[in-house]
């Protein structure tokens, strides 16, 4: 880059970093406070001068079970979402069936239904089916966050796969399922990863279903663990922030390691 363009773009880069610092200040604060023990500290200092991991020790004592629950539920939701959404995305992108338009319309509307509406009704349904306070119930409910999104984003990608690819296999006698499983799924791997990552994040961040569909302490996602801390008057913010940091790790890791998938998903949100 020539010196003149550098001098012209440098102020932009600096301003960009300032904006980012401003926007991410709460994230910094979260990490900062999590490292300050002070069990009854009335306030926090700007830098964690006395780094202590007491907050994390308490958080891990309190929340290990909840973190594991969140992992199990989120992975389960990914599995259910992809199992349901991938074949549907293939059908939407390839077949010309009467009624597909209605189905797509229903998916768009489904994304707009307020979660509390679903929670209201699922509570009574799950109560009848014995699915309250169960992993299966949370997994199934959390898949609502991801399935419509996953179908829309994967079908958009599958539309770009040349039809000749599967037609050749079909002429050779392969069934639709075989063509789907051994051609479409491998070719669409990236869009499956994008959809899966977002399904994971949606389910991991879920608060609504954890709040409404679990009542005891046995099965409780970490988001509810944080909420429990916030219920009363918080005496010590170290463990609360440590838990918040632990619950933010998936988002941070994915944003750094899987940036291109996240970017693709964010854009997918725009075109749906």
């Amino acid at each position: 880059m020539s010196p003149t363009t550098t001098s012209r773009t440098l102020p932009h880069t600096i301003l960009g970093i300032v904006l980012l610092a401003f926007m991410l200040f709460p994230v910094y604060w979260m990490v900062n406070v999590s490292l300050q023990g002070g069990s009854t500290a009335a306030s926090s200092t700007f830098l964690p001068t006395d780094v202590t991991f007491d907050g994390y020790r308490t958080a891990i004592e309190d929340q290990t079970g909840n973190l594991l629950t969140s992992i199990v539920v989120a992975l389960g939701a990914v599995a259910v979402s992809l199992a349901v959404a991938t074949p549907a995305a293939y059908a939407v992108s390839r077949f010309r069936l009467r009624g597909l338009g209605v189905f797509l319309f229903a998916l768009l509307l489904a994304q707009m239904i307020p979660g509390i509406v679903i929670a209201n009704s699922l509570y009574t349904l799950f109560n009848d089916l014995g699915l309250l306070n169960s992993y299966a119930g949370l997994v199934l409910a959390n898949a609502t966050h991801g399935i419509p999104f996953a179908i829309l984003i994967m079908s958009a990608f599958m539309r770009s796969i040349p039809p000749a690819l599967t037609e050749a296999a079909r002429v050779d006698g392969a069934s639709h399922f075989r063509a789907f499983w051994s051609i479409i799924v491998p070719v669409s791997k990236n869009s499956l990863i994008t959809a899966g990552l977002f399904c994971f994040l949606f389910a991991w961040s879920d608060f609504m279903f954890g709040l409404t569909l679990t009542t005891g302490a046995d099965i409780k996602p970490v988001t509810l663990g944080i909420y429990d801390y916030l219920q009363g008057n918080v005496q010590s913010w170290g463990p609360v922030m440590a838990t918040a940091v632990l619950s933010s790790i998936p988002a941070i890791v994915l944003l750094v390691l899987a940036q291109r998938y996240i970017a693709a998903g964010a854009m997918g949100g725009a075109v749906k």
């Binding site: 773009t9 880069t13 904006l19 980012l20 926007m23 709460p26 406070v33 961040s205 922030m241 918040a244």
Partner: peptide, 30 residues
């Protein structure tokens, strides 16, 4: 477009990707 613009822009997505309740918790203290 300027140096680092893409990196900065994608890091800006973080508040949106975090569990909202984690965001609420830190704001409650701020």
């Amino acid at each position: 477009r300027f140096p680092l613009s893409n990196v900065l822009r994608s890091l800006l997505l973080l508040p949106w990707l975090l569990p909202m309740i984690a965001g609420s918790a830190v704001w409650r203290w701020i």
